[in-house]
Design a protein around this nucleic acid. Structure first.
Length: 768
DNA sequence: GTAAGAAAAATTTTT
DNA sequence: TTTTTCTTAC
């Protein structure tokens, strides 16, 4: 068949597009036209007669899905494109789960718990079990649960898994399995699924209902998966099952850009694709169309340091371009300033703001950058961080909506049962939940019949609870008939949420009002769009199911046109900019200190840096600061080890104001000198005004962290030293010892007595 | 039960 | 620095 658009592809791209006989894996180097292959392949399938509704295309982000859909619409027309099954794993399968919900014991309107809901639930379970939250940290527990779900390990399977149980015992969290079990029960009682459930329950649905599996196997004549290197086991299995019959499947990915293992992504899925699909064809896309030779080669030299990878030769035929400029600055503030200056300079080199991005490892780094850009009047837009739907007032309104659509939603109930304040306090809420657990029902169920469940509250409280319940009941009755906007509108009015946000005229209060209005507007638009599409009345549950999987990245506004982009490296994946600034390239930040334990994690961080560099088309800047303000105090840092992984020939190194020019190998020495200089000036004796001359003193961080090389911060207290404690005052150290790896000191506080303190916890100031 | 204020803790990446 | 938890006074 002669399809002219195929001529826009190179040889390997074209072969990847045209192969539709069976399974295929496209290994796509950075910038090699991966999305192009996917979109053209879908267009090709459509042009060769496949119905849009039988094509399933799974992406990683909503944004990727939307953009691809637009591009396809441009090629085959909007009317055809709209019937494609295209979206993220989570959104596509939540849609399927909703329509088949009854088959796995959920209702059609099940709630989707976001990570905040999960966190809150985990925390309350830990509390209810009376466990020490210093040992059972919610973050750790959450990641364990998530790990289990992503690997399709149910609570029962967890208990039967000796490796997991052993690991938990070794980490001194033997009750992890209990927490997990209760967590699942509670989600079920609340008729709620968390993000991981959307994948886990899809597997359950397919496993327990062969007829449904078959229905979707037949429906999807061709399956495409983007970013396959980031799929986890649950996703892998869903895809495998759906493709089982015909193996009409094409996955695209780049092992060098696998950066989501913390979310369960398993790089083996792509590395061993051929084992799953034995007749699979493999196509390699190696020509990079995005970046200059220098950038491609610099990135290659970096990723070359990773042991785990599919070797490939990514090359560029564009011009050589400029070397990557490395910027060395003293503080994070200066870093912002320098970056802003460079951005201003780029404007004279024919760069628009929208051609430029600033990438960082953590969202918290955005603040300083924002300030610097604002000061210089540079427009920017920021991705991530606190999204619209995570703001308090929005979550409150959404919680009401959630509860109305699904009264069993415990997290929503907890959130608003006393907002605005109606005299139902913590004690009461705890009683209700305790009671609900006793009878294995949802909290709402208890409220519907307090007598039956013997809820032990006094008459006044019972009355308040009953009032609250009937208020929600009234809304719940209307939810299937009223449209979403009218519902939401009367909810915010009747419940007093509006009144609460209108209490004063402070800027904060005004902005909260605006946000609530903004949300109502969004719901209104949602209803209108549905109506324009000729669909029946848009109900509140419909809106909720759309909104729960949206993130801020999904709101691209017109006003965001010509602005510098600020985002984390993770969210930059898949994007490209003419100029890219990678800031905060320091040890303890990038690589993240949480990821330096194992070589595997370290390699992932290196891939992350690889992703960052390969976003750049023409110019790339890398900066590191010698000191950075973090968690309320200034920390010192060394340049990231990853900078040394890039071949020097591609770098434009900073010239330090030193007798000799800094070379890579000298950095550590230089930093050492720099630090010593700073510290000697810092620790100079000083005399406080209107007080007796006191001995110079300095704060000493006493935790014995190993990575810390700063001498003053690492020293423990010698016996005989004098220390000051916030409560006990001044004392003399009698002796120090090690207890379970923690340093303990016996300190004589005079009349307050001799105390034995763990240095890890006690805030001590050493007097010298 | 509430509100305010103090103290302590926690800081990665995202659907 | 920001967020959460604890304390205290009404």
């Amino acid at each position: 068949m002669d399809l002219p658009f195929l001529n826009e592809l190179n040889e390997s791209q074209r072969r990847a597009v045209e192969y539709t006989d069976g399974a295929s894996l496209v290994i796509a180097g950075a910038g090699s036209g991966k999305t192009r292959v996917l979109t053209y392949k879908i267009a090709y399938l459509l042009k060769t007669g496949m119905a849009p509704s039988s094509i399933l295309a799974l992406t990683f982000t909503n944004k990727a899905a939307r953009e691809m859909k637009e591009r396809i619409a441009g090629m085959v027309g909007e009317k055809t494109a709209r019937y494609l099954w295209m979206g993220t794993f989570h959104s596509v399968f939540s849609r399927i789960l909703r329509s088949e919900a009854e088959r796995i014991g959920y209702s059609k309107n099940f709630t989707i718990y976001d990570s905040a809901d999960s966190k809150s639930l985990v925390k309350s379970i830990i509390k209810e079990l009376k466990l020490d939250d210093k040992i059972y940290k919610h973050g750790f527990v959450q990641s364990r649960i998530s790990y289990a779900k992503n690997n399709l390990i149910t609570p029962d399977a967890y208990l039967a898994n000796t490796d997991l149980i052993k690991a938990d015992n070794a980490s001194r969290v033997p009750l992890m399995n209990n927490i997990y079990k209760i967590y699942c029960t509670r989600c079920k009682q609340a008729d709620a699924m968390d993000f991981d459930d959307l994948l886990l329950q899809t597997n359950v649905l397919f496993r327990n209902n062969p007829d449904i599996l078959q229905k979707y196997q037949n429906l999807f004549g061709y399956i495409l998966v983007d970013e396959y290197q980031d799929t986890n086991f649950a996703q892998y299995l869903i895809v495998k099952k759906l493709a089982e019959q015909h193996e009409k499947i094409c996955v695209v990915g780049d092992d060098a850009q696998s950066i989501y293992s913390f979310r369960g992504a398993n790089i083996d899925n792509i590395l061993t694709f051929k084992n799953t699909y034995q007749n699979a064809q493999i196509f390699k896309l190696e020509q990079n169309y995005r970046s200059t030779k220098t950038i491609v080669n610099a990135a290659n030299s970096l990723i070359d340091k990773n042991a785990q990878q599919i070797r490939k030769t990514v090359f560029s035929e564009k011009e050589t371009g400029k070397p990557i400029k490395v910027l060395s600055v003293f503080t994070d503030f200066e870093e912002g300033f320098i970056v802003a200056n460079n951005i201003s300079d780029l404007r004279f080199a024919n760069f628009r703001y929208q051609d430029i991005a600033v990438l960082y490892r953590t969202n918290s780094q955005s603040r300083v950058m924002e300030e610097a850009l604002r000061k210089q009047g540079i427009p920017y837009r920021i991705y991530g961080g606190l999204s619209f739907y995570q703001r308090k007032e929005i979550k409150d309104v959404i919680a009401y909506c959630r509860l109305v659509c699904n009264p069993n939603d415990e997290e929503a109930l907890k959130r608003i049962i006393n907002y605005p304040a109606r005299g139902i306090g913590e004690t009461t809420v705890n009683k209700v939940i305790e009671c609900s657990q006793l009878h294995a029902v949802s909290a709402w169920e208890v409220l519907t019949d307090m007598l039956k469940y013997n809820l032990a509250v006094n008459a006044g409280t019972a009355n308040k609870l009953a009032q609250f319940r009937s208020m929600i009941d009234v809304f719940a009755e209307q939810v299937t008939t009223q449209n979403a906007y009218d519902m939401a509108n009367s909810i915010v009015k009747t419940t007093g949420v509006i009144a609460d946000t209108y209490t004063d005229h402070s800027p904060e209060s005004m902005s909260r009002q605006e946000n609530v209005q903004e949300l109502l507007k969004a719901i209104h638009e949602f209803c209108e769009t549905k109506q324009a599409d000729g669909e029946p009345t848009a109900l509140l549950p419909d809106f909720l199911s759309e909104v729960s999987l949206l993130t801020d990245q999904d709101t691209d506004k017109e006003t965001d046109k010509d602005k510098v982009t600020l985002m984390t490296v993770h969210s930059a994946k898949g994007l490209e900019f003419r100029a890219v600034f990678i800031v905060g390239m320091e040890e303890e930040l990038f690589p993240s200190p949480f990821c330096t334990q194992s070589e595997r994690e370290l390699e992932e961080e290196r891939r992350l840096f690889y992703v960052a560099i390969t976003r750049a088309e023409e110019l790339c800047f890398i900066s590191f600061a010698k000191s950075r303000f973090k968690n309320g105090k200034t920390n010192f840092s060394n340049p990231s080890r990853f900078i040394k992984d890039i071949d020097l020939q591609f770098l434009d190194m900073p010239v330090e104001a030193k007798p000799k020019q800094a070379r890579i190998g000298d950095w550590d020495d230089d930093m050492e000198r720099e630090r010593n200089r700073f510290q000697s000036s810092f620790s100079k004796p000083f005399i406080r005004e209107n007080s007796l001359p006191v001995a110079p003193k300095r704060m000493v961080k006493l935790s014995n962290t190993d990575g810390d090389k700063i001498p003053t911060e690492n020293s423990s207290i010698p016996a005989g030293a004098f220390v000051k404690h916030n409560i006990f005052g001044i004392g003399k150290v009698l002796e120090t010892s090690m207890v379970n790896g923690n340093e303990k000191a016996e300190i004589d506080f005079g009349e307050k007595g001799v105390k034995s303190l763990l240095l890890k916890f006690a805030k001590l100031e050493v007097l010298k």
